[in-house]
Design a protein around this nucleic acid. Sequence first.
DNA 1: CTGTTAGCGCTTTCAT
DNA 2: ATGAAAGCGCTAACAG
Lengths: 375, 375
Amino acid sequence: MIIWCGEPTDVRPICVTIHNAARLTLMESSTGSERVTLAQVAERAGVSVMTASYTYNRPNRVSDQARSKVLAAAAELGYPGPDPSARSLRRGSTRTLGVVMGEHLSYAFEDPEATSFLAGIADVCADRGYGMTILPITGGSADVPRVTDAAVDGFIVWTTSDDDPILAAVQAMKRPAVVHGGPAVNGMGLVSIDNRAAARAVGSLAFAGAQRPAVVSFPLSRDRTSTIEGGADITAVRFPVTRERLEGYRQAAEDTGTAWHDVIVAVCARNDAAEAERIAATLLAFDEPPDAIAAMSDQQAAGVVRAARAAGRVIPDDVAVTGWDDAAVARQLGLTTVAQSLRDQGAACALAALGHEPNSQTAPWSIVRRDSTRV
Amino acid sequence: MIIWCGEPTDVRPICVTIHNAARLTLMESSTGSERVTLAQVAERAGVSVMTASYTYNRPNRVSDQARSKVLAAAAELGYPGPDPSARSLRRGSTRTLGVVMGEHLSYAFEDPEATSFLAGIADVCADRGYGMTILPITGGSADVPRVTDAAVDGFIVWTTSDDDPILAAVQAMKRPAVVHGGPAVNGMGLVSIDNRAAARAVGSLAFAGAQRPAVVSFPLSRDRTSTIEGGADITAVRFPVTRERLEGYRQAAEDTGTAWHDVIVAVCARNDAAEAERIAATLLAFDEPPDAIAAMSDQQAAGVVRAARAAGRVIPDDVAVTGWDDAAVARQLGLTTVAQSLRDQGAACALAALGHEPNSQTAPWSIVRRDSTRV
DNA sequence: CTGTTAGCGCTTTCAT
DNA sequence: ATGAAAGCGCTAACAG
């Protein structure tokens, strides 16, 4: 019964044996009886439909006797309780919030900051007895109908590009809606930190004493092209959060005496340590390699740190590195970074989406200064 | 504008400055007009309600002329499209799957394996045009109504205890339902690996050549008591996945000549590296410390590794360590572990919950043998 | 405390 | 290609 194969060599998987083939078992079909209605329960209990309804919705408005008759009838009939769809229609409310999580499907669940954000929404939903519906977005044309068909009382949209068609679809639903990060959309709330100010602040630490500052950036547009260039046309950037951060880095660079077009901007297609490591390795192999790299996430910064170590550089002396978010990895690596609570921002979005008046909120941020910068 | 404070000392945060107080801005109230209905659109377009309905549902059954009249009227009136709740009621389907994510609220979003599982569900939902509703569970009495009120076509339940009241609530909904991991519930599907066999297999590696094997375990019951004891009353364990794994470890211990009551079982309240590290440190400080520790997750195993290093032990010579899940951290640390695809299992659950006949499936697993075990 | 009436907004018949 | 009728299952509003 001992199962293994191959020989140990290094820390990578040496061999994986599929031990158990997937196996399918059909079970008995679910109780195929027709859907039981409240009217049937009422009839069986010998009361009116309203008495049955009150039994579920306002139990104290009903006599003990009537209530137990209704409950008994419901049990006999196997009544699953009032149908949620019918209830939603009648009440005009679904007690559910919709969350649109960005243009790539698995993004919501792969990015630790995105999951913190979701946890913040879940906190509020659990507290208020709401469900939360994740609207999986793929970037395809089926995304809009998915938003349109969602039976929710309000929407929360994870940061996206100015030109994302999902925004118009959400807006057209005429329900309370909040965007996290950006863009600002007429009639929707906006919950965000001041990305420009935060980028300027952390960039000032990253670029202090540096001759050749660089930025490792999120994508500039929805096509997610990966590029390396001196400067970047900031006004053409379609993701407002990225645009604001680049603007902040630009100011920080100019504050420390470097013109923006001399700042190397390395654009990654995804927020991913591995890609950041590759692109940072490329930068560090230049004849005149950067001596300061400001990344847009701690994940990216972790990749940069690995690339720097692999290239034999000392942090921060040879190259300063900064991250963003103050994730666990930032603490582990001693990264100077921007701290913000995505969880709190998720909660703020949920509260705003629950209210009838969409509201906007500027969230707090701070700089956490550690050992990865010269100052 | 440069924001920081304090002085760098080590890799932990030295100071966090709240730069920006949270600020609230109320925006203009959303277009307060009454909800526009399909009937109003039809009237304005000068057609019947059905023509308007067909325009949205079967566009080819409607003449171009009628369709454009309807669309024009809808635009003028600001009609958001057919109301999802009304549609669900009439159609008898919500095109949404409900996911019950365990008794602790943030669990779903903090555990990387849980998020993989969710990503697998999201894959299927996106593909089939379904939404997914997360039902946040707190462990309180409000959980059952939340399940009861969920407007979903089917349920997926993340592994829980035999006595979790949520199971009866889901069962009572009489919709297709699948449990991941366990327990097996009459009328619901079950998607799981053979935890007992996998535990026996990985336990055989962990305990090979060991004199004093130990297990770092998930909680045994919903009260999540943290304990350390020789052996454990396996039959009393309320979480079937944990029970099966303990049973497998018991077999592995007996296979290598150790009686179960001589196996130290350290029960953690949560699946958490920090708690595992603390409890492992306690174990390793014993007069006769364990020389093999099998954990129930890679997270826990990572904590064990840290504790072992802190205690100056060499892995695997002084103490062998195994994990579970083959997460990224297992590769980093060179952990022998059980590999399974939570993502695939999530997808399997979603497919089962979409079908009318609940089905069960035994998922594949394998052992990944690395350097943390003696064999 | 209980019941009657009305209708939430939509789409499935079935006719024309 | 279009329309009339019927009703999905429930609950707000109002009697009694």
